[in-house]
Amino acid sequence: MKGLVLASLLAAVSSLVPTADYTYEQFVEDFHKEISPRAQSLFSQRLSEALSFNANPNRSYTKGINQFSDQEAPPRGRKASRVTSDLKLASTYKRTVEIEELPKEVDWRTAGVVTPVKNQGQCGSCWAFATTATVESHIALETGLLFSLSPQQLVACAPNTDHCGGIGGCMGSIPEVAYDYLIGAGGYAEEWSFPYISYTGATNGTCPASEDLQVKAGIGGYVKLEENNAADVMVALATVGPLAVNVDASNWHNYESGVYDGCEYDAMDIDHVVVLVGYGTDEDTGLDYWLVRNSWSPTFGEAGYIRLLREAPEDTKCGVDTTPQDGTGCDGASTQYPCGQCGVVFDVSYPTGAFLA
């Protein structure tokens, strides 16, 4: 999965809800932008869109102005499509409790097992960042120690010979490929010893020889949940820990806050990998949500997170993705039917056997 390629610039303002008198000149100052006629035109379009959308009193979320508001619609990423039989080391999830036994809300951030939000930049490495964040949490859950591990290691080293979700590195992959690599390689280096250099998307970096890799932690396997089983996703999230999920994030770029319900079920395009870290109910609207960690820096959305509308498992809607082989995909991929808002319960996994080296 390549993910949406978004150039995230350091900004004095992370994001804001615009007013009608907010100007392009103020935007340039707030977000340290270069003045450009084309960028100004895009900004004006996005400002008008946000003002019009936010004027609707019945909306469940708010659109804002952020560092992406003067950019073209970002390129679509590679698909999450893969041939299930090709997964080498996956185990099948078995539900241990029923939904009725679960807490009303879960937020793994409060347990101290979630690292700060990171930034993939212009590299299509969402798959590496989501895998890394998920593994970091499961290492912490198993050992009590929270390390910042290296997404760059996956970008530079994880082979994608079956071309699942892309061709690897900044051109996309999926968590299952990353898990397989990590198991064979013996684990992860810490981020300080293998820092991220692929921010601009110009390079995947160089993979060091195995004897030069300073492995800190690893995993022994991973679990694949049944596709589109919302009940299993909710139980696994509450009882096991954070989950790597594949979603349609094509319209997330102007999300500011609230419970997002903007994905189109009849035209889904699964193109991004993120991490489920919790669920709950919004106090203001009463809407149930999934809490999702993104990799577009803390300036995106709610401090780097987005809340997606969560339907009851028995009422979870499904959509259609008719182009699962955009880019490269996996051989044999065909039309898919992702379920949940933005396909959030379609393709879900987590690592097992976490250990410190």
Rank of each mutant, 00 (worst) to 15 (best):
G353M: 02
P75C: 15
C330P: 09
A333P: 02
F346S: 14
K94H: 12
Q120G: 04
C263I: 08
V155Q: 05
G166A: 08
V320G: 13
D315K: 12
K33T: 07
Y260L: 12
A236I: 06
S36V: 12
M1V: 11
Y265H: 11
H32K: 14
C164K: 00
A11C: 06
V247S: 01
E264N: 09
G165F: 00
V17H: 09
H32L: 11
L42Y: 09
T323I: 13
I183D: 01
V223P: 09
V247D: 05
T131I: 10
D347M: 07
D212P: 11
R46G: 01
E211H: 03
V247Y: 15
E49Y: 08
P74H: 13
P195S: 06
V117W: 03
T131G: 09
W296A: 04
G262L: 06
Q336R: 15
S334W: 06
T161F: 11
V83E: 05
T62R: 13
E314K: 13
G220L: 13
A73Q: 13
S91Y: 14
V83H: 07
D162K: 00
A178S: 08
T96V: 09
S14K: 11
G124Y: 02
T206W: 02
K118G: 05
G77Q: 02
V106P: 07
F300C: 04
R293L: 13
P338E: 09
V97Y: 11
S15G: 12
Q122L: 11
G169Q: 05
Y196N: 11
M268H: 08
L291P: 02
C170F: 02
A111Y: 02
E256F: 12
T239R: 10
K79C: 12
P338S: 04
